[in-house]
C-alpha cells in the first residue's frame, strides 16, 4: 500500500477511534496499514458502469474554505479538474453510522482507487467540516497526520477542508442542502453535538452534483461504479 494512502486510511481509522464510541464495532487502531471498519456489505450486485445515467441533481456551490494545510482557498478550487466525492463531517461526531462511516467509506474508496491509477488520477475526495470552531485546520491536520503536508495541495487524493466561521460555512451547507441542528441544553449552551443526515456528494467536472449518497447507498462499490460511469459518459461526449 502506498505510504500516503496508508497514512490517510490510518488517519480515518484514528478518527473512527476518536469519535466512534457508539459504533458497536471495534474501531481499527490508529496504526498505519490497518483498514478501517468496513460498512455492511452489499446484498446486491450494483449495475455495471455505463449501463445507467446519473442525471444532474444540482449545481455545486462555491464558498471560502481553509485547507488543513492552513491555506485559504475556495471550494471551487477543488472542483472542476477532477471528479469529486464531497463528504460533510465533524471531528466530534459520535454517531456510529454518521461521520465515521463516511470517513471509513472514503478510506476504502481511496484504497480501491489505488488499484485503478487511471481513474484515481481523475478523482478527489474531500472531507469538509461543518464545525468550524473546533475543527480548525490544525485540529484536522492533527487527526489525519503530518504527512498530509507532503503532497502539493492539488495532488492530494483526499483533501481536508474547514471554514473560518459559521458565516462562511452556512452558504455552503445551504447550497448543498446539508442541514444540521446544533444541539443546546436548557441554558441554551451548545452541547457540541450536531444532528445531521449523512450525505456524500458525487460531483462531476462541470461542478454538477450527480449523486447523493446516504447510509443505504454509501458503499465503495457503488461509488466506484458511479465514478466510472461519469468517466465513460465524458469519454462518449469526447
Amino acid at each position: 500500500m502506498h505510504r500516503r494512502g496508508a497514512s490517510l486510511i490510518a488517519a480515518a481509522s484514528a478518527l473512527c477511534l476518536t469519535l466512534c464510541a457508539a459504533c458497536g464495532q471495534a474501531p481499527a487502531p490508529p496504526t498505519a496499514g490497518v483498514a478501517p471498519t468496513p460498512p455492511p456489505g452489499l446484498e446486491f450486485v450494483p449495475p455495471d458502469p455505463g449501463s445507467y445515467r446519473l442525471p444532474t441533481i444540482q449545481a455545486a456551490v462555491d464558498g471560502a474554505v481553509i485547507d488543513a494545510d492552513g491555506t485559504e482557498r475556495h471550494l471551487f478550487d477543488y472542483l472542476g479538474d477532477r471528479y469529486v466525492l464531497l463528504s460533510f463531517i465533524y471531528l466530534n461526531c459520535k454517531e456510529a453510522k454518521g461521520c465515521p462511516l463516511a470517513n471509513a467509506n472514503l478510506a476504502m474508496i481511496r484504497q480501491d482507487l489505488e488499484a485503478d491509477p487511471a481513474l484515481a488520477s481523475q478523482v478527489r475526495l474531500i472531507s469538509l467540516s461543518f464545525d468550524p470552531e473546533r475543527d480548525t485546520p490544525e485540529a484536522m491536520l492533527r487527526h489525519w497526520g503530518a504527512d498530509y503536508l507532503e503532497s502539493p495541495w492539488d495532488k492530494r487524493r483526499w483533501s481536508l477542508v474547514t471554514t473560518a466561521s459559521r458565516a462562511d460555512l452556512q452558504p455552503i451547507l445551504d447550497g448543498f442542502g446539508q442541514y444540521i441542528v446544533r444541539e443546546v441544553d436548557e441554558q441554551g449552551r451548545e452541547t457540541g453535538n450536531l444532528s445531521h443526515v449523512l450525505k456524500v456528494f458525487l460531483i462531476d467536472r462541470e461542478r454538477e452534483v450527480r449523486n447523493v449518497y446516504s447510509t443505504s447507498f454509501l458503499h465503495p462499490a457503488i461509488a466506484m461504479n458511479d465514478l466510472r460511469t461519469l468517466v465513460m459518459e465524458e469519454a462518449e461526449r469526447g
Binding site: E95, A96, K97, G98, L101, V181, E183, V184, D185, E186, N193, S195, H196, V197, L198, S214, T215
Partner: peptide
C-alpha cells in the same frame, strides 16, 4: 421529557443510522 430531551431524540432521529 422536556424539550431538551426531545432535542436529543431529534439527534437520534437525524442520525443517518437511526433513520
Amino acid at each position: 421529557r422536556s424539550w431538551i430531551g426531545m432535542v436529543v431524540a431529534a439527534a437520534m432521529a437525524l442520525a443517518p443510522g437511526a433513520a
